Amino acid sequence: MPLPILICDDSALARKQMARTLPKEWDVEITYATNGLEGIEAIREGKGEVVFLDLNMPVMDGYQVLEAIQREDLPALVIVVSGDIQIKAHERVKSLGALDFIQKPVSADAISHILQEYGILELALGGQEQQAPMIEVDLRDACQEVANVAMGRAADLLAKLLNVFVKLPIPNVNVLEVSELTMTLKATEDYGTVSALCQGFIGAGVAGEALLLFHDSSFQDMAKLMKLENPEDEETELEVMIDTANVLIGAFLNGISEQLHMKFSQSHPVILGRHCSVNHLISENSDKWSRTLAMEINYSIEDHDIQCDLLLLFTEDSLPTLNNKLGYLLD
């Protein structure tokens, strides 16, 4: 009988990449789940003796899946496959019973090594080559998975610098008109006043702006983590903004460039506004933005009152090049 394999990930691109990296000689039957709840139901039905599990998912995330497997004593060997490469994420999944951790994007060599290391590959050798079900991947899904991996790279760097755990959301990716982008930014108004800066970036056929919105309530806590003197001083706030932007924007763009095999040049950061409402920020700068591909990530730090929103706004002219680059990931 083929070995029941479950690939649990909300990204169609990630599911497709994962299925492709499984050893060809492995006699397996693959089931897909798009969130943790679907994954748990599949495991209960005996469709996931070996599970490749993402962490950041809607409805039920990977941590909750691991907790449910432990609580119900379900027969599943779980290998976490995630873009969240923070050391504390590794430690948490191992403490919840995960067999091991593989960082995204996955490679066939990494998968084969882990399967051999734990003796899993030998469980189902010698069968006929299996054809994984076809998975359709659109531009938005592919961009979201690229953003997910880049987000994890940036969070890992910030976590190491501050010795914290960065809580990661599911990236929000959409092609937006200016009016829709305005609504996206206004969604942060619940957090009170913000300070913001932008930084332009350009690569071969791709250009845009990175926008960092720092919630004003976060400044003092962030300054203390950075061990800066005079956390209430305006110059200290400026230093916090620029240092945070250098980490998050730089690492995020590097994460994208690694996946799409292209390099970005960055301009100097420019302050867009300080201690103002999002509505004011938009009205002062809306003429800079037109139709755009937007990647939106909200970073927050566990046990601290710190939140900031990172938006990558790609120009409309960048879409053909991005489509072409993403095509290599889809094929």
Rank of each mutant, 00 (worst) to 15 (best):
223 A>M: 00
77 L>T: 14
138 D>M: 09
70 Q>N: 14
54 D>I: 11
114 I>K: 11
19 A>M: 10
55 L>N: 06
100 D>R: 08
314 F>K: 09
179 S>M: 13
205 G>S: 10
130 Q>P: 04
280 H>P: 01
182 T>S: 12
95 S>F: 00
144 Q>G: 06
329 L>V: 09
215 H>V: 09
272 L>M: 15
285 N>W: 03
283 S>L: 12
50 V>M: 11
188 T>L: 05
27 D>M: 04
231 P>W: 00
99 L>V: 14
163 N>R: 09
52 F>I: 04
166 V>W: 00
19 A>V: 06
243 D>Q: 13
217 S>W: 11
84 D>L: 10
155 A>T: 07
308 C>N: 04
265 S>K: 14
229 E>W: 01
252 F>Y: 10
165 F>Y: 04
68 A>T: 12
14 A>P: 02
60 M>K: 15
91 E>A: 06
274 R>Y: 00
40 I>T: 08
119 G>D: 09
327 G>D: 03
162 L>D: 00
129 E>W: 07
321 T>H: 00
2 P>S: 08
325 K>Y: 00
145 E>G: 04
113 H>T: 11
200 G>Q: 09
49 E>S: 08
220 Q>S: 10
267 S>I: 07
319 L>S: 08
42 A>I: 02
5 I>P: 00
327 G>M: 09
84 D>F: 05
263 K>P: 01
204 A>L: 13
261 H>W: 05
177 E>C: 09
301 I>N: 05
176 L>V: 06
221 D>L: 03
152 G>S: 07
103 Q>M: 13
251 A>N: 02
134 M>N: 11
87 I>C: 03
45 E>I: 00
322 L>W: 01
192 G>Y: 05
54 D>M: 13
30 I>Y: 10
49 E>P: 01
122 E>V: 01
217 S>H: 15
113 H>G: 05
151 M>S: 13
18 M>D: 03
136 E>I: 02
290 S>D: 14
148 N>P: 02
315 T>R: 12
217 S>V: 15
265 S>Q: 11
111 I>Q: 03
246 N>F: 06
331 D>W: 15
32 Y>I: 01
48 G>A: 06
148 N>I: 02
189 E>R: 11
160 K>Y: 03
137 V>S: 15
243 D>E: 10
101 F>H: 08
24 K>D: 04
326 L>E: 02
115 L>P: 00
21 T>Y: 02
242 I>M: 05
279 N>G: 05
144 Q>L: 13
